[in-house]
Lab assay of single mutants.
Amino acid sequence: EPLWIRPDAPSRCTWQLGRPASESPHHHTAPAKSPKILPDILKKIGDTPMVRINKIGKKFGLKCELLAKCEFFNAGGSVKDRISLRMIEDAERDGTLKPGDTIIEPTSGNTGIGLALAAAVRGYRCIIVMPEKMSSEKVDVLRALGAEIVRTPTNARFDSPESHVGVAWRLKNEIPNSHILDQYRNASNPLAHYDTTADEILQQCDGKLDMLVASVGTGGTITGIARKLKEKCPGCRIIGVDPEGSILAEPEELNQTEQTTYEVEGIGYDFIPTVLDRTVVDKWFKSNDEEAFTFARMLIAQEGLLCGGSAGSTVAVAVKAAQELQEGQRCVVILPDSVRNYMTKFLSDRWMLQKGFLKEEDLTEKKPWWWHLRVQELGLSAPLTVLPTITCGHTIEILREKGFDQAPVVDEAGVILGMVTLGNMLSSLLAGKVQPSDQVGKVIYKQFKQIRLTDTLGRLSHILEMDHFALVVHEQIQYHSTGKSSQRQMVFGVVTAIDLLNFVAAQERDQK
């Protein structure tokens, strides 16, 4: 057995438009009618409502009807409940999964919650491996369901041993009777949507819809739904939504950006999952974080739909894509998950301010006199920076000697690579993860907040409520011999709460 199987392995699926269902090699399930009293909570997966979006479509000038398939009504709160249950049931049916076995899954959280929910009911041990950027709410729900959680670096490539995929496979090879159901490759993922989600949409719309818009992560949702719609409703256009920084969209030119990270969760990847059939997507749109969270908040405030950030991405694209539809036509959007997962993220004004998705003037509360002053007023001194090749031991000596707790790590040209902190280095040394002679590049981390000289002290204040420091950066445009230009970030300084307090105190003292 291989040590790991690539999540982007070539698909062996034989589905073709027009091929009889009787030739399918898979076990198919028909939607079942729910009894009045459910035998367990797993029976509350599927049969989610279709809700008309009344205000947002009109606000953006849509002539067509805009409908939302509300997947956050599933038992675990997301569309991923469907595939989690289906993968477990299919693994039980073919004898792969037996009582007492362990389920391991690399996930952005929602599939993990679905699997942990099913594992709690069915009696399996469950280990979820997820990147650090995923919300604390997801972690809390997983723990409450009895799952064990392993976190991995957000910026690790999918084929790196440190990625959530790599760590999951390492655990599988170490733990007896453990299984990775593997949402990236498992046919049960798109089949769950082909058999149930798509049929529900067709039934709820009486077979009449002209466009379907869905955000894409593993691709199982859009693949399964689109294949069924292509068979039953061939005139329906399928629109895929991919965040900026991901590479799922086609044509490839759409993916060209210097951005590699994004805040919206559960969609987009740096590889093409095996289950994603991009041939059934008629057109791709890219979405960005700001519009995703703005539209998610709009869905909550104006439509009462308590959905997550990827739902915002989907609707932001839908109001663009559906401009081509006329009166009497219908566009369906998939709202994948609930706001429950993001209470401390985009639902929080403070978080939105820190990330730059909300401006101070958007909030009406009274601010102190210094709130709208610029960061450049602080008069920061030149920063202490270190090269990635310097040793951890030497870096600790320098920081202690100069009285700093942290320093930016830059390359020879001064471009920011990340940050090192005294606390992080000492804990890594004590844990045996690094040696004093190791290069400081081994303990770089990139989960820090950046701020510009033109940003306000109010925004800085919000950042420092949650973080010990902020890195002050400025952009530099560099022209190359080819005539092309590129933008790079340079370090201007490091600012802490002490710097802000000293500035405010000094100004008030001078005024007296």
Rank of each mutant, 00 (worst) to 15 (best):
Glu250Met: 12
Lys442Arg: 15
Phe448Val: 15
Thr395Ser: 14
Ser481His: 13
Val434Phe: 14
Val241Thr: 10
Gln447Pro: 13
Gln511Tyr: 11
Gln511Leu: 11
Pro336His: 05
His474Gln: 12
Ser348Phe: 04
Glu465Tyr: 07
Arg488Met: 15
Gly414Phe: 15
Cys392Ala: 14
Tyr342Leu: 02
Val494Gly: 03
Asp438Tyr: 15
Gln323Val: 11
Val504Ile: 13
Thr389Leu: 11
Thr260Asn: 05
Asp349Ser: 11
Leu276Gln: 02
Asp362Tyr: 13
Glu291Phe: 09
Gln435Pro: 11
Thr279Asn: 15
Gln447Ser: 12
Leu460Val: 15
Gln256Met: 12
Pro368Arg: 11
Gly458Ile: 07
Leu471Tyr: 09
Ser427Leu: 11
Glu360Val: 12
Gly312Ser: 01
Glu324Leu: 06
Asp242Ser: 03
Ile451Met: 13
Met490Leu: 14
Glu265Thr: 02
Leu353Asp: 03
Glu475Ser: 03
Ile267Val: 13
Gly328Pro: 09
Val264Met: 11
Val280Arg: 13
Gln476Trp: 01
Thr496Glu: 07
Glu475Met: 08
Val410Met: 15
Trp284Phe: 04
Ile398Glu: 15
Val339Ala: 10
Gly312Cys: 03
Arg350Pro: 04
Glu250Ile: 10
Gln259Thr: 11
Tyr269Gly: 01
Met490Ala: 15
Val420His: 00
Gln507Trp: 14
His474Lys: 05
Asn255Gln: 06
Thr456Gly: 13
Trp284Gly: 00
Leu399His: 01
Thr496Gly: 07
Ser381Ala: 12
Lys286Asp: 00
Ala296Arg: 00
Val409Lys: 01
Lys433Gly: 09
Val339Pro: 06
Cys307Met: 05
Leu384Phe: 12
Leu353Gln: 10
Arg374Ala: 11
Glu250Arg: 12
Thr257Met: 15
Ser481Gln: 13
His480Glu: 09
Val491Phe: 14
Gln507Lys: 15
Leu387Ala: 11
Asp282Arg: 13
Gln326Pro: 10
Ala505Trp: 02
Ala292Trp: 01
Gly418His: 14
Gly309His: 01
Ile390Pro: 03
Gly393Ile: 14
Val333Met: 13
Gly328Ala: 04
Gly240Ile: 00
Gln302His: 12
Glu327Thr: 12
Glu263Ser: 06
Glu258Tyr: 08
Phe469Cys: 15
Tyr269Glu: 05
Gln329Phe: 08
Gln354Arg: 08
Ala311Asp: 10
Gln354Pro: 05
Phe469Asn: 10
Leu335Gly: 00
Pro336Phe: 01
Leu471Thr: 08
Glu265Asn: 00
Thr421Lys: 10
Leu464Ile: 12
Gly414Ala: 02
Val473Leu: 15
Phe285Thr: 07
Phe492Trp: 13
Gly403Trp: 12
Val420Cys: 08
Ile334Gly: 02
Phe346Lys: 04
Val440Arg: 02
Leu248Ile: 07
Tyr445Met: 05
Ala292Ser: 07
Ala318Phe: 01
Phe492Glu: 13
Gly379Asn: 10
Phe503Leu: 14
Lys345Ala: 04
Gly418Ser: 14
Gly493Lys: 11
Pro383Glu: 08
Ile300Glu: 02
Asn341Gln: 04
Asp242Phe: 00
Gln376Gly: 10
Asn424Pro: 09
Val410Phe: 11
Lys433Trp: 02
Gly268Cys: 00
Ala413Ser: 14
Asp337Val: 01
Ala505Met: 08
His468Cys: 02
Ile477Val: 12
Thr454Tyr: 09
Trp284Met: 00
Phe285Gly: 09
His372Val: 15
Met490Tyr: 13
Thr389Gly: 10
Ser485His: 02
Ile477Arg: 12
Leu422Arg: 15
Gln507Gly: 14
Ser381Leu: 15
Arg340Asn: 05
Leu457Thr: 05
Gln439Lys: 10
Glu465Cys: 09
Gly356Tyr: 07
Val415Thr: 15
Gly483His: 14
Thr260Arg: 02
Asp510Pro: 10
Ser348Asn: 15
Ile396Tyr: 11
Gln406Ile: 08
Arg374Asn: 14
Phe285Ile: 15
Ala311Tyr: 05
Gln256Asn: 13
Glu244Gln: 10
Val315Thr: 11
Val409Trp: 00
Trp370Asn: 05
Asp510Ile: 05
Ile300Asn: 01
Leu347Ile: 09
Asp289Pro: 00
Asp510Tyr: 11
Val386Cys: 14
Ile238Asn: 02
Ser381Phe: 11
Val472Ala: 12
Ile396Gly: 09
Glu508Thr: 02
Glu252His: 02
Gly309Thr: 02
Val275Pro: 03
Leu387Gln: 13
Leu471Ser: 07
Leu500Trp: 07
Ile398Gln: 10
His474Phe: 09
Ala292Glu: 07
Phe293His: 05
Met343Asn: 05
Asn288Ser: 11
Met425Lys: 12
Phe448His: 09
Glu252Trp: 13
Gln326Asp: 12
Asn255Met: 04
Phe448Lys: 07
Glu475Phe: 09
Ser481Lys: 13
Arg452Trp: 12
Val504Gln: 09
Leu248Asp: 02
Glu290Val: 13
Ala292Met: 03
Gly418Arg: 04
Val281His: 00
Gly328Ser: 14
Val494Glu: 05
Ala413Glu: 13
Ala316His: 14
Arg400Asn: 12
Val472Cys: 09
Gly423Glu: 15
Phe404His: 05
Ser427Ala: 10
Leu429Ala: 02
Leu305Val: 13
Ser461Gln: 09
Lys512Val: 14
Gln329Met: 14
Arg400Tyr: 12
Lys433Cys: 15
Phe295Trp: 14
Thr261Glu: 11
Ile451Tyr: 08
Val409Glu: 07
Lys359Tyr: 11
Lys367Arg: 15
Leu417Tyr: 10
Glu324Gln: 15
Ser485Lys: 02
Lys320Arg: 06
Tyr269Thr: 04
Ile300Ala: 01
Glu397Gly: 13
Ala316Cys: 05
Pro273Thr: 13
Lys433Asp: 02
Lys355Asp: 02
Tyr445Arg: 08
Gly266Phe: 02
Ile477Pro: 02
Ile498Met: 14
Val281Ser: 07
Leu353Trp: 06
Gln439Trp: 13
Met343His: 05
Glu303Lys: 09
Val473Arg: 10
Gln439Met: 05
Trp351Ile: 00
Pro336Ser: 14
Asp455Leu: 09
Gly309Ser: 04
Thr314Asp: 02
Arg459Gly: 10
Gly245Ser: 07
Asp455Thr: 11
Gln354Ala: 10
Val473Ser: 14
Leu430Ser: 14
Val409Tyr: 08
Asn341Tyr: 01
Leu457His: 00
Ala322Ile: 05
Thr395Ala: 15
Pro251Glu: 06
Asp289Met: 00
Pro383Ile: 09
Gly268His: 00
Gly418Phe: 07
Val319Thr: 11
Thr344Val: 04
Asp277Asn: 15
Thr421Ala: 14
Met466Phe: 15
Lys366Asn: 13
Glu365Tyr: 09
Lys484Gln: 13
Leu358Ser: 03
Gly441Gln: 12
Ala321Met: 13
Ser381Met: 13
Ser481Gly: 12
Gln487Pro: 11
Ala321Glu: 12
Gln259Asn: 14
Ser348Asp: 14
Tyr342Gly: 00
Glu244Asn: 09
Ile396Phe: 10
Tyr269Ile: 01
Phe293Thr: 01
Pro273Ser: 01
Val264Arg: 00
Ala292Leu: 05
Ile334Cys: 01
His480Arg: 12
Thr364Asn: 13
Ser310His: 01
Lys355Ser: 09
Leu353Lys: 10
Arg488Ile: 12
Cys307Trp: 06
Thr395Val: 11
Lys484Tyr: 15
Met419Asn: 12
Trp371Ala: 09
Met343Ala: 03
Ile463Trp: 02
Ile416Leu: 15
Pro436Cys: 15
Pro368Ile: 09
Thr314Phe: 02
Phe404Val: 08
